[in-house]
């Protein structure tokens, strides 16, 4: 094996500066808690205490909130710690706070940046926020406004996706 340390940039870590792009700003968002809940969707909502799970192109507002990943899976954001494992109400619960990094893209050109790596259209609704972005499994949704978006990405690919967004 060869030493490839210099081939790869040193990770910027969690304390990285906001990037101002052409018509958008890119920043890393700290979240206090992310919880994955799988099961019949009504049971997932009941366990999470949420009334609805957001899909695309819903605009997510307020805290905490639930994102729908698939027909039997939610990610609850900032909902507080929950007991992990099998819940007798028929759902599986796992903490995922550290598993996902969250990037926020805000600005009128944010949608163009996203469309460089995925197909997003307001006219094409989806029950899920799960998307491939530049080939990476991500969650993409609108956050609080028409022009602000959040991406939940696997933490191990933060450097790669951040670099993609700057390339």
């Amino acid at each position: 094996m060869r030493d490839d340390s210099t081939k790869w940039d040193t990770p910027l870590g969690q304390e990285r500066a906001t990037i101002a792009g052409d018509g958008f700003e890119l920043s890393l968002i700290p979240l206090t808690c992310q919880t994955l809940i799988s099961g019949p969707i009504a049971a997932c909502l009941a366990v999470s205490g949420q009334k609805q799970a957001f899909g695309w192109p819903d605009i997510v507002t307020g805290q905490p909130y639930a994102l729908r990943l698939r027909r039997d899976r939610l990610l609850v954001v900032n909902g507080g710690q929950q007991a992990e494992g099998w819940d007798e109400r028929g759902v599986a619960v796992s903490d995922m706070t550290g598993a996902y990094s969250v990037i926020e893209i805000d600005g009128p050109q944010a949608i163009d940046l996203l469309n460089s790596g995925t197909e997003l259209s307001i006219d094409l609704p989806s029950g899920t926020v799960a998307r491939q972005f530049h080939g990476f499994a991500t969650l993409i949704y609108r956050w609080q406004s028409l022009t602000c978006y959040r991406l939940h990405i696997q933490r191990c690919y933060l450097e790669a996706i951040w670099k993609h967004m700057q390339s």
């Binding site: 094996m1 081939k7 790869w8 990770p11 696997q154 191990c156 933060l158 450097e159 790669a160 993609h164």
Partner: peptide
């Protein structure tokens, strides 16, 4: 497109990579 250099086949990065670099680790793909 942008899939070149470090983005050609991006590796997964460890949370502790900063510690390993500080300790003089030789990093490679495994």
């Amino acid at each position: 497109g942008a899939r070149r250099g470090q983005l050609f086949n991006p590796l997964k990065r460890l949370v502790l990579e900063d510690r390993h670099r500080a300790a003089g680790a030789a990093l490679g793909e495994y």
